[in-house]
């Protein structure tokens, strides 16, 4: 009996010590982890906009996340956009709900500290309280609107779509006219050497510079990639071609279909279709959002 009590005592003590160690390191590392994650994401986004360590982003550049929710009340579905409200406090947000046909429905103001806004859970809670009970809220996606001195510079669209095997996660950068500024593949599980090549510059940079009109009809061709074009696509890596040269070649191919990866037509097609889908949906929605914001005179920083 004494044995058992000793065992229990010691085990409890060990557990406590272990929990202490783990809890301590969790507290220390968790903040760093989140910070690093953000820094990393921001780096990718800025690089899509053409900024790098050599060419740092100006201080006037600002990234404004807009979160989209699906708000359901009984059978009626509306879209809810969580937008920051300009002027006044930094924690002022508004949830603008828009009907499926683009008509304004309601505006709910809420207060949410910006760092809390980045936490999916806390944000959802805030939104839920704002719209009141009786409605179900479902997070849909996020758009980041980039401004420079208040002028809209670009849109950053994180998205995911099915690839050849599982999901491909990307971030897409568009300019205000929906011309693609860049594509970054964040996560994928395509076959190495085949579909896995979608991360290569010569594939993903093909999307760069495609205007919206070309994008809507964008297809995939199984022709070999012309050497000249390839040189331009990989300019960032090889540095052999000057920027003017690259721009000239990209201009030349800007309406051309995407050249498929050899042996991975399906992956190439999924990425192309995925990108097309993201851009089309976004272009459709941002028009409504902008109109509603303007009509309702909601002042936003973008």
């Amino acid at each position: 009996m004494k044995d058992i009590s000793t065992i229990i005592f010691r085990l409890t003590l060990t557990c406590l010590v272990a929990a202490l160690i783990m809890g301590g390191s969790f507290i220390v590392t968790n903040r760093a982890k989140q910070h690093n994650q953000q820094v990393n994401e921001q780096k990718v986004m800025l690089s899509l906009l053409g900024y790098s360590a050599a060419k740092p982003a100006p201080a006037s550049l600002a990234l404004h996340p807009v979160y989209r929710y699906l708000v359901t009340e009984q059978d009626v579905q509306t879209l809810g956009y969580l937008v920051p409200v300009a002027g006044g406090a930094t924690d002022a947000f508004a949830l603008v709900t828009i009907a499926l046909d683009g008509k304004f429905v309601a505006r709910h103001d809420l207060r949410l500290a910006p760092e809390k806004a980045e936490q999916a859970k806390e944000r959802l809670q805030a939104v839920q309280t704002a719209v009141g009970s009786g409605k179900t809220i479902q997070y849909a996606d996020q758009t980041i609107i980039v401004t420079d001195n208040g002028q809209r510079q670009a849109y950053l669209l994180p998205g995911e779509f099915p690839g050849f095997k599982t999901f491909v996660k990307v971030i897409l950068a568009l300019d205000p006219g929906f011309t693609v500024l860049g594509l970054e593949i964040m996560e994928h599980e395509e076959d190495p050497g085949l579909g896995g090549e979608i991360v290569q510059d010569y594939f993903k940079n093909q999307f760069r510079g495609k205007p919206y009109e070309a994008l809507k009809k964008l297809g995939v061709v199984k022709e070999p990639l012309p050497d000249e074009y390839r040189g331009a696509l990989e300019a960032g890596k090889t540095g052999r071609l000057g920027p003017e040269e690259v721009a000239r070649i990209q201009e030349q191919y800007k309406d051309h279909d995407i050249y498929a990866l050899t042996g991975a037509t399906i992956s190439s097609r999924s990425v192309t279709n995925g990108v097309k889908g993201i851009v089309k949906k976004f272009a459709y929605r941002i028009a409504f959002l902008d109109r509603v914001l303007a009509e309702q005179r909601i002042v936003v920083p973008f």
Partner: peptide, 25 residues
């Protein structure tokens, strides 16, 4: 009698620590 559980607990603790450290930094 609780040798093995103690070992497991010890290892698990340190693995958790290194896991968190790597994930963060």
């Amino acid at each position: 009698r609780i040798r093995i559980p103690t070992y497991t607990l010890t290892i698990a603790t340190w693995v958790t620590v290194i896991d968190m450290v790597l994930a963060a930094y």
